[in-house]
């Protein structure tokens, strides 16, 4: 097997490895010691190189409008997530998290998943992050403590995250090579007909990543030209192909809810046992 920079897989591997190194160098020290200039600078350089390598894999979407929106949302998501991790004030971090969620749902919207986009905004931006803010504001932390500035296991963190990224890029790239002649790019605005088509890249990713866990009955197959309402299709898929996963997730959430109630219920205050002798206890 020849290795050259023209091979996308090679560029992807180089990008992922450089990214892992750069991120490791940028992560704070295990004990919260201040990083040296040389370390930070080389970390930034490696990360930029890594992004450049990965960016060389991108294909510009077919329509100019989609391209503008895609790159705007993608850049916003990456910038906001870096700021979320690096900002010192927890309230600012939470707000940057909200920005990440909004940018991500913009990307969902471009991919034709409008229900997912709206649902993400409602659940994450509208409820979860507001609850975070609620707690942070009550606790009034400033994020100056040592344990906030230290990373517990920087090496393992970097390796794990970039393994996941590598796997993702690998699966997407192998898909792209197979379908290069059909004109399907890695990034392409899609309509619902294209998703439903059995040889479309999206359908293939779906088949590879989410194999059905259960099936009550054979779902009604739609013809490639017919469009079903998106939400109805999503619901049908969830409650036929993935019934067991859905039920397990629901059960887990229910257990967590019961545990929350058990923890949160106020207990009767314990009286100090100092001066109480058995005869003094009222019956």
């Amino acid at each position: 097997m020849t290795v050259s920079l023209a091979d996308p897989m090679f560029r992807a591997i180089v990008g992922v490895v450089l990214g892992a190194l750069g991120t490791f160098l940028l992560l704070p020290h295990r004990l919260g010691a201040a990083p040296t200039w040389a370390r930070s600078l080389s970390g930034v350089l490696l990360s930029v190189l890594s992004i450049a390598f990965l960016a060389s894999l991108w294909q510009v979407p077919a329509s100019a409008f989609n391209a503008i929106f895609f790159f705007a949302f993608a850049a916003a998501a990456i910038t906001a997530s870096v700021l979320m991790i690096t900002s010192r004030d927890p309230v600012h971090s939470a707000l940057w998290f909200a920005a990440v969620v909004l940018a991500t749902s913009g990307l969902f919207l471009l991919a034709g998943a409008s229900f997912l986009a709206a649902g993400t905004v409602i659940v994450y931006a509208g409820a979860i992050i507001v609850t975070f803010l609620f707690v942070i504001m009550l606790a009034q932390q400033q994020g100056r403590a040592v344990y906030d500035r230290a990373a517990r296991a920087p090496l393992l963190t970097a390796v794990t995250c970039f393994l996941i990224l590598g796997g993702l890029v690998y699966s997407l790239l192998s898909l792209k090579v197979e379908h290069a002649e059909a004109g399907h790019g890695l990034v392409r605005p899609i309509d619902r007909v294209a998703i439903e088509h059995p040889t479309s890249p999206n359908r293939q990713v779906l088949n590879r990543s989410v194999s059905p866990t259960a099936r009550l009955n054979e779902p009604a197959r739609v013809s490639p030209t017919e469009t079903v309402p998106e939400v109805a299709g999503l619901g049908a898929s969830l409650f036929t192909d993935h019934l067991i996963s859905v039920e397990v997730a629901g059960f887990l959430l229910f257990v967590a809810l019961v545990a929350c109630l058990a923890i949160a219920t106020p207990k009767p205050p314990k009286r100090p046992a100092v001066n109480i002798t058995p005869t003094e206890v009222p019956i």
């Binding site: 409008s114 229900f115 709206a118 649902g119 905004v121 409602i122 309402p229 939400v231």
Partner: peptide, 10 residues
Amino acid sequence: VDVGIVYVFA
């Protein structure tokens, strides 16, 4: 927009 009402809530 298929999910109009959900968008308004979001």
